[in-house]
Amino acid sequence: MKKGLTLQFVPYNEIGKLDSNSKIKKILKVVKDNKIVLLEGKLKSEEEAMLIQRTMEQIDRNFKGIEIATIEGKDEKDFIAVLKKNLARALLGDKFGLTIIGPASIVKEIKKDPNKIELFTNK
């Protein structure tokens, strides 16, 4: 039987108001259910570190960890473009960008450059 990949979109308004602990719990619950999370926006760097810590705490025979990548668009050099991007960041805050988090058993590698994410799977 063929198995497909499940991508679960998590809109910012679903986790934006949660505290860091609850955010991480929610993300890891989806990932441990063998789904790939497409998160609108990004985690704070402290939350990313916490996500890594919680992931390490939960690694066992079945759960090998996660792959994670955030994309925010390329670093602009043109002054107006930089201004626009900074304005978007200021207005949107953590809602700016897109984060992909998947179980390491399914997502082998996420390669990224500022503009694109390539996701390589194990299956």
């Binding site: 760097s45 990548a69 955030t70 390669k111």
Partner: peptide, 16 residues
């Protein structure tokens, strides 16, 4: 490739 999330997370945490 330096552009990976582990590096960005480490540096982001130090900056914070």
């Amino acid at each position: 490739n330096p552009y990976n999330q582990v590096n960005i997370t480490i540096i982001g945490n130090l900056a914070a």
